[in-house]
């Protein structure tokens, strides 16, 4: 799997140094919404220049090259274990070559592994594919925005959030209000709803790999995504949290069936630098 390993190294390079076109386009539209001479306008202009320079010079556009998160659709018969080893090799090479910042820290010894591999690092999710193609989605998830995420158990009395669409809506607004500028807005917001705690956190993160321009297949959720995007932008938090019209550029919601006793809502925030990319093999 040497060629595949090099392909994954290239994927790392692309994802760390260039922003997906849909995100960049949304950032350009956001700039047009901000008042002349405002800190929002100034921040977004510098961000857009940063995106351009990073791409042109092949340097990671943020020094926090994040936790690498892989979502993999693997064809029948291909070994998950072999693929995992290929990804670990590619991670070590990419860290040295691009370079990426070494971010994997042992919680007992406090030592940084130096190569972005370690226990559960990178994060790799496998799912068997119905086709013969191997699809590798990679997201470099920045930690500033990761820290600003929240999980809720509905009903939540403090928010008067019940077990319904309105309840989900209140959780998302609450997360953004609490996050303010700490996670580098404009945000892309992933929401996962369902009955198992581990599932909803994965689901919310998986929403962040959806294209900003796609439409949710579930009508009720599509409506909620649209409504939330407009409401969040009315909060006035703005780019970098210094006030302005663009607090978010996308809201994406996924749902699983839940247990009668449980109703979890997990909200994952991504900074504007929602670095993601796909390799099909």
């Amino acid at each position: 799997m040497l060629k595949l390993r090099d392909g994954v190294v290239e994927l790392y390079k692309k994802v760390a140094t260039s922003l997906p076109p849909d995100i960049e386009a949304a950032m350009r539209s956001a700039l047009l919404q901000e008042a002349a001479g405002s800190s929002a306008q100034s921040s977004l202009s510098i961000i857009l220049e940063n995106i351009k320079t990073a791409r042109e010079t092949g340097r990671p556009l943020c020094q926090d090259t994040g936790i690498p998160v892989f979502f993999i659709k693997i064809p029948v018969g291909l070994s998950q274990l072999a693929l995992k080893h290929t990804i670990l090799d590619a991670t070590r090479i990419a860290t040295e070559k691009i370079p990426l910042r070494a971010n994997a820290v042992d919680i007992i010894t406090e030592k940084n592994s130096g190569d972005n591999t370690g226990a559960g690092f990178p994060v790799i999710y496998f799912e068997e594919s119905q086709t013969s193609a191997l699809t590798i989605e990679l997201m470099l998830k920045g930690a500033g925005s990761e820290n600003a995420g929240q999980i809720y158990k509905l009903p939540d009395e403090s928010l008067n959030a019940q077990r319904d669409i309105e309840g989900i809506r209140k959780c998302v607004l609450d997360t953004v209000q609490k996050a303010q500028g700490k996670g580098c807005p404009p945000y892309i917001i992933g929401v996962g709803v369902g009955g198992a705690k581990d599932q909803v956190t994965r689901l919310s993160k998986e929403q962040l790999i959806r294209k900003l321009t796609d439409t949710n297949k579930i009508d009720e959720l599509a409506l909620l995504e649209k409504r939330l995007l407009s409401e969040i932008n009315n909060l006035g938090i703005g780019p970098m949290g210094l006030g302005g019209a663009s607090t978010a550029i996308g809201v994406k919601i996924g749902a699983n069936h839940r247990h009668p006793a449980s109703y979890f809502v997990d909200v994952s925030l991504s900074c504007w630098a929602n670095r993601r990319g796909r390799l099909i093999w």
Binding site: I46, N50, A54, Q63, D64, M240
Partner: peptide
């Protein structure tokens, strides 16, 4: 400006020194 890391790095001209590199990484 969060995330404008290449833009800001281009305005850093030189590394003059470092402390606690071995200990903290």
């Amino acid at each position: 400006i969060g995330g404008a890391a290449v833009y800001l790095a281009e305005r850093i001209k030189k590394v003059l020194g470092v402390w606690k590199l071995d200990e903290f990484g």
